[in-house]
Nucleic acid binder design. Structure first.
Length: 414
RNA sequence: GUGGCUGUAGCUCAGUUGGUUAGAGCGCCAGGUUGUGGUCCUGGAGGCCGUGGGUUCAAAUCCCAUCAGCCACCCCA
């Protein structure tokens, strides 16, 4: 093993793995477009404030996971840990709120300074959608539907479960949060150290604690549904009704809470038990307060993000790379002819490999290694007669035919 | 950030209680076939045994540190 290692938590995407990533991205993009989501790309870094203000000062991402840098000019920038904040910033920067609602799809790298493990890297990749400017529950339904459709298209829907919860509107959430804090404070001595810290940072998280002592305390905790006001109840009911209408099954999970502060109402996660310690494949929710928090006009939003590495781990069928035609000139005289033929075939749509060096045997071997479909051999003998030799590398059968007739003959092999 | 396991050839892995020149399979290169791949046969190249320090007459093997991977926690895609 070389001592020259990549930075911890980063990986090279070599062709085989890259193909899986591409398959995920391209299929997802195709489905998202059917739902009217247009692709955009925002910068991989933003001013640190963009993330600090949107993610909340107490979130784990902000407190310990951001890759932040100070520039010579004194500016503080951060590699994006997620993309919703960037999209929201773009909406404000470009004055896009004139054209609401907007539907965006994105794909790209994200960066979080976490301890790497299976399904978790420091540079990873996400696809995601954001639907901005639609306060209606229909938007939630559509956003969940497109996510589900993509999982279906990837052939991994059966490996996932949709979990659903509501965090209510700000009024309900605030009320519930207060009730929770007051309850947990009474039982503070029975809580784990982690959960006591959560009490001030993110009390909702205590509900999802794995600590046995915590769980006992949680059993007696107030239930969110008792604190949902009418607006929040109606909204959630509408979302559920829509999912039922579409035949989208889900499991209610009242412990499903989001680490990020800007979420309201709908929270959902497609989870899988095939990702090691990780479970979330595609997760998101509604963030009605986000854009206003950033200083933009009050604009509701809902979206999700999915980890491409995690999706790629589940995807079974990846269409293989197209098979090449190997053009093999033999002798100096054939080189020019081979070059011309190669170019012609490429314009015709074929993947063509024209080796740079080596004898015939070596080139045949290379053609085989790249899993080429056919080899076209051009030697002095053939050229004098205006011919080439075409070898079918699957069957081993070979024929000599006129150069002019080659393209049409090749078409029959594919 | 915390705890545990692991690190030997490009890959997957052997390597005995510390003891000559560290092995295998696959892959790679060459030859058998001067214009014919995939199968087969023969030969070859390729290792600071993750890195640095220590113990010892002697370290891949024992100890410490460090880096990386994996697993769990935290949290998340």
């Amino acid at each position: 093993m070389s001592t020259l290692q990549p930075v911890r938590g980063t990986h090279d995407l070599l062709p085989e793995e890259m193909r899986r990533h591409r398959a995920v991205i391209e299929r997802a993009r195709g489905i998202a477009e059917r739902y009217g989501f247009e692709e955009i790309a925002t910068p991989v870094f933003e001013f640190t404030d963009v993330f600090k203000r949107t993610l909340g000062d107490t979130s784990d991402i902000v407190t310990k996971e951001m890759y932040s840098f100070s520039l010579k000019e004194g500016e503080e920038i951060t590699l994006r840990p997620e993309n919703t904040a960037g999209v929201a910033r773009a909406l404000i920067s470009n004055g896009l709120h004139q054209n609401l609602p907007l539907k965006y799809f994105y794909a790209g790298p994200m960066f979080r300074h976490e301890r790497p493990q299976k399904g978790r890297q420091r540079q990873f990749h996400q696809i995601g959608v954001e639907l901005l400017g639609a306060p209606q529950p229909q938007a939630d339904i559509e956003v969940i539907a497109v996510g589900r459709h993509i999982l279906q298209e990837l052939g991994i829907l059966q490996d996932t479960v949709l979990e659903l919860n509501t965090l209510g509107d700000p009024e309900s959430r605030t009320a519930y949060r207060a009730a929770l804090v007051s309850y947990f404070e009474q039982h503070e001595t029975s809580l784990s150290e982690d959960s006591r810290a959560r009490l001030t940072r993110n009390p909702l998280r205590i509900l999802d604690s794995k600590d046995e002592g915590d769980r006992k305390v949680v059993e007696g905790a107030p239930a969110f549904e008792d604190y949902l006001n009418e607006t929040s109840q109606n909204f959630f009911a509408e979302v559920r009704r829509g999912l039922d209408e579409l035949g989208i099954p889900y499991q209610l999970n009242s412990r499903l809470v989001r680490g990020l502060d800007y979420y309201t109402h709908t929270a959902f996660e497609f989870t899988s038990d095939r990702l090691g310690a990780q479970s979330a494949v595609l997760a998101g929710g509604r963030y009605d307060g986000l854009i206003e928090t950033m200083g933009g006009p009050a604009t509701p939003g809902i979206g999700w993000a999915a980890g491409i590495e995690r999706l790629a781990m589940l995807v079974q069928d990846v269409s293989p790379a197209p098979r090449a035609v190997a053009v093999i000139p033999v002798g100096e005289a054939a080189a020019d002819q081979a070059l011309k033929l190669t170019q012609e075939l490429r314009h015709r749509g074929y993947v063509v490999d024209l080796g740079y060096s080596g004898n015939l045997k070596k080139r045949m071997k290379r053609a085989n290694q790249m899993h080429a479909r056919a080899a076209v051999m051009m030697g002095d003998d053939e050229l004098k007669a205006g011919q080439v030799t075409l070898r079918d590398l699957d069957s081993g059968e070979q024929e000599t035919l006129a150069l002019d007739a080659l393209p049409a003959r090749l078409d029959t092999l594919y």
